[in-house]
């Protein structure tokens, strides 16, 4: 099956190759093959597959990676626009009432 791909050229992922030491953590944590090892350094090989989960940035101890992490969930974004907080239905709401529907 061909690889599922979402909208191209939108993600906020930034990589500063000068800070990379080639530890390989980003390659280990990325669930979409965005990174590969090239010449003993990480390389962004498939930026458009990035889902902005933030795993690589959070696990880069050399601060070579930056991304505005978030969850690609329309319900959460719409709830955020309506001022209800970015919740997608699978967590506790502000007033402590639990919501029982959602993606996860």
């Amino acid at each position: 099956m061909k690889k599922l791909r979402y909208l191209p050229n939108v993600v906020t992922l930034e990589f500063d190759k000068k800070k990379c030491t080639g530890c390989g953590r980003c390659i280990e944590v990325c669930p979409h093959g965005v990174w590969q090892m090239k010449d003993k350094r990480a390389a962004l090989v498939d930026k458009n597959s990035c889902i902005e989960c933030g795993a690589c940035a959070k696990n880069c101890r050399y601060f070579a990676i930056e991304v505005q992490a978030g969850v690609g969930c329309a319900a959460a974004v719409i709830n955020g626009m309506r001022g209800k907080g970015e919740i997608c239905g699978c967590e506790t709401t502000k007033d402590g009432k639990t919501v029982s529907t959602g993606c996860c």
Partner: peptide
């Protein structure tokens, strides 16, 4: 998009 495994929040914002 919320249940899918390959969407980014920037993409979802753009789509919405």
């Amino acid at each position: 998009t919320g249940a899918s495994t390959y969407t980014s929040v920037s993409g979802v914002r753009k789509e919405i």
